[in-house]
Design a protein around this nucleic acid. Sequence first.
DNA 1: AAGGCTATCAACCGCTTTCTA
DNA 2: TTAGAAAGCGGTTGATAGCCT
Length: 257
Amino acid sequence: MIHNSHSPLNSYKNTPILNRSSRTTQHYQSLSLLYLSFSVYSMVRQACCRKEEMNRGTWTEEEDRILKTYIQDHGEGKWKSLPKRAGLKRCGKSCRLRWLNYLRPDIKRGNITPDEEDLIIRLHNLLGNRWSLIAKRLPGRTDNEIKNYWNTCLRKKLKHDHDLIESKPSIIVRTKAPRCTTKLSFCSNKCIKENNATNTTEEAIVPTVSSEAASSDQTQQENWWDLLGSLDTYFDFDDWIPICGDNSAFDQEKCNW
DNA sequence: AAGGCTATCAACCGCTTTCTA
DNA sequence: TTAGAAAGCGGTTGATAGCCT
């Protein structure tokens, strides 16, 4: 879709919490609490930028040109101070997003190909709504693009298969340990070595498998391996071994528990 | 032609995670 | 070790195009 880059966004209206005439003492008490909370919140958390001084909405061609030129000359990073340095009336987050999702030279234009679509579906099946991780497996595509594509096209497309999907065991790979309760995880040999050496967390994919998949149910384990097998085009699994609480449960020779 | 409705997707927001001093 | 800053992430919003009546 082509947006008119010169049309201002007429959004973010000040919506009153209640009509003045319909407010009661109770409403005012609630409002006081709300304002108090907001004041405390403001003391703790500073806004990333002053909204009234910033351009918002669709980027103009001129803004794009300024941002692109600046990043080509000075490189990415330091997004918070970038707008000031580059002479843009945008907040740093907005600049970052615009660069990552639109201006970056390696962005792939055009429709999602059937191969890409297939990969998105498979990865989503594996990873869930981890758009940035999915995007990393699709060169030139952004997480935002994939997320939109999923929410608009694929969700509908797959809806008629809903019952089929529902009947399958849910095997979602979680990638951030604090967010999941898992028994089973996968880690590359390289990663283990590095972690042992540096005692740091590996940023690359170190997926853990949801507890459903970690059950002793043979069918679920087979499904899991099927899923991994279908993805080996995209992942280099030669270097990956499963670890399961203690590794002893896994037979690396037979590739099974 | 006009108005309503829907689909799309860029951009925003709030929160979490990671980095750094 | 800790607090604040920076970066990253995913859900949501809203402008716009296009279709339908």
